[in-house]
Write a protein that binds this DNA or RNA. Structure first.
Lengths: 178, 178
DNA sequence: ACCCTCATGTAAACAGTTACATGATTGT
DNA sequence: ACAATCATGTAACTGTTTACATGAGGGT
């Protein structure tokens, strides 16, 4: 149930509404987690029922009221317990590799798909590098919570780099076959 | 629904029972996909209902009969269609990075967890390298279907390497803080 | 005696996606 | 006029995990 803990962590950093959290998933931590607004709203109600969150309604003119959630002491305890539990590396599920496995009889299709992915990974890498320069150009002077975010971005950069290299290597092998 | 296509691909390579497929998930393609036997049995029935698979019962002395599935022409068509559809890179979900994001207030806990993961990734890398030497020491002489498997293993190796390097980098930063 | 492998499955809970639904404000 | 952003949610479906369930044979 890691979505629970992602939400607890986000709200512990800063209280916010379902809408705010949706945007944070799509920006600050998009490189290692995703959740849709439907999932988020559902999970927030569930967590409030468990007693891990409470909310305050902030009315706004012309818009639905913002339902701002914050973590209760019980929620903080839950987050803390989770943090102390050792966990296995997240299992990999990779559709592109599955395609390679499935498509040995159609190497040209695979080559096209690898090329597409190569470009997508290059775009992601560029994006992450821009973020790095923009927000983390002097990491040693950042507070710890920001340093941690920087480490996750470094993981994203490293991931895209290795993927790019692997795409190139695989394309070279595939092409030399034809 | 990529489990469907994973099973089609596996059975297209070689017919087998639910039990066989469970083992293949845990060996040949463990580095890029996983499925439990419960999922597999349920999905196989569903796929047979759809007309993508058929089965033959092979009775055995003292054991339940082996229910050996094979792909029908309709199933092959489904696999083929899927292969030709371009797909986005699989989204990442990484609990370790989530922990970093969540645990800025407990760097010592994170350090321990990073160390554990470093060792786990080293073990995986060693395992993959052994496989590489054993089965793929002369990749150019392998049939295409085996070459494809080799490419997926290369991706696994690359993944473990980059993770190891990232763990080391992050541990170094974290340690220099304390 | 106890655990592992072989071999099959069901049931319940949990997680994630897709589609539906509303309504004001701001920008092109 | 049309689309995007702000802001909330429900419902149905699909996918995944965990627990339960059975039973023979082989190894320590």
């Amino acid at each position: 149930m890691a979505l629970t803990h992602a939400l607890l962590a986000m709200l512990h950093r800063e209280a916010g509404s379902g809408y705010d959290l949706t945007k944070r998933f799509d920006s600050a931590i998009a490189h290692f987690w995703h959740a849709s607004h439907q999932q988020i709203y559902r999970e927030l109600s569930r967590m409030e029922n468990e007693g891990w969150l409470s909310h305050t309604l902030l009315p706004q003119a012309g818009k639905p009221a913002r339902k701002v959630y914050q973590v209760t002491p019980a929620g903080l305890q839950t987050l803390h317990d989770w943090l102390h539990q050792p966990m296995d590396p997240s299992p990999v599920k990779d559709t592109l590799l599955l395609k390679l496995y499935a498509g040995a009889e159609h190497p040209e299709v695979l080559r096209q798909e690898l090329l597409r992915h190569q470009h997508l990974h290059q775009a992601k890498l560029d994006e992450y590098r821009t973020l790095e320069q923009h927000y983390f150009s002097d990491p040693k002077r950042l507070p710890l919570s920001e340093r941690m975010l920087y480490f996750t971005l470094r993981a994203g950069i490293s991931h895209e780099q290795h993927r790019l290299a692997w795409c190139a290597e695989t394309l070279a092998s595939l092409t030399s076959l034809a």
